[in-house]
């Protein structure tokens, strides 16, 4: 499996692309000053990136790992145009919507709706279950911070160890949880890696992982 720089996970043997926490329909955020460079609609931006990944990987199956829609606004926030766009991406593909804690249940949208998806040897679900193995989940929107000369940079990241992968949020402008948060540290093994998204995917030892806490003590 490949952790793509865009934040998607690609499984070539299955021709499967997995994305998590799209949060379609989150109200557009027009940047304040100098916001000229940001697109006015996050949904369109997310769809543009998803279409690019689908074109490049030629994936035949797509798994959306929950929280694909922002609850209350799902009906209003998605425009006709964006709805049609999603339908177009779905054409000719096996498409699974995994339920998240935000999703308002099955929508009037094509594809299969499931609570979890076992695809041996792997289990796809929205929220990681402690103690399970070979699990791919999302929910936490993990982010990692690095100090550089240009100040602290933060990037959405994958968290990967031998038990599980926690995926970054794929939706544009979603917030996130720093990966040194106890909730994430508790889930991951000490030797876990964080893979930063961006132009290229870049692995680093997971910040805040348990071993380094021991070091500090």
């Amino acid at each position: 499996m490949e952790a793509m720089p865009s934040g998607a996970l690609f499984w070539p043997e299955q021709s499967l692309l997995c994305v998590s926490d799209l949060h379609f329909g989150k109200s557009e955020r027009i940047a304040r000053l100098g916001g000229a460079m940001l697109p006015p609609y996050d949904t369109r931006d997310t769809l543009t990136r998803l279409e690019k990944d689908l074109t490049r990987t030629k994936a035949r199956s797509v798994i959306c790992l929950g929280d694909s829609f922002d609850d209350s606004i799902a009906a209003r926030g998605i425009s006709e145009q964006e709805f049609t766009w999603i339908t177009r991406l779905q054409a000719g593909r096996h498409w699974v919507w995994i339920e998240g804690n935000h999703d308002p249940g099955p929508l009037a949208m094509g594809g299969t709706h499931m609570a979890e998806l076992p695809l041996p040897p792997v289990q796809f679900r929205h929220i990681a279950v402690p103690g399970s193995a070979a699990e791919i989940s999302g929910h936490y929107h993990p982010k990692a911070q690095l100090k550089t000369k240009a100040g602290t940079l933060s990037r959405p990241c994958f968290l990967i160890d031998s038990d599980r992968v926690i995926m970054p949020a794929y939706g544009s402008y979603t917030g996130g949880l720093m990966c040194d948060d106890p909730a994430l540290v508790g889930l991951m093994r000490p030797e876990a890696l964080a893979v930063l998204t961006g132009d290229v995917a870049q692995p680093i030892p997971m910040p805040g992982r348990r071993s380094s806490i021991h070091d500090e003590i």
């Binding site: 550089t148 000369k149 240009a150 890696l193 132009d199 290229v200 692995p203 030892p205």
Partner: peptide, 30 residues
């Protein structure tokens, strides 16, 4: 106004390489 371009990517690459080297994971693939 911040510019998200090659400059930030380069800083990030330098920093990640340093961290991986410190952790002795120089060649760790995925």
């Amino acid at each position: 106004v911040r510019i998200d371009g090659e400059g930030r990517e380069r800083l990030l690459r330098e920093e990640t390489a340093k961290l991986m080297a410190e952790a002795g994971l120089m060649d760790a693939g995925l």
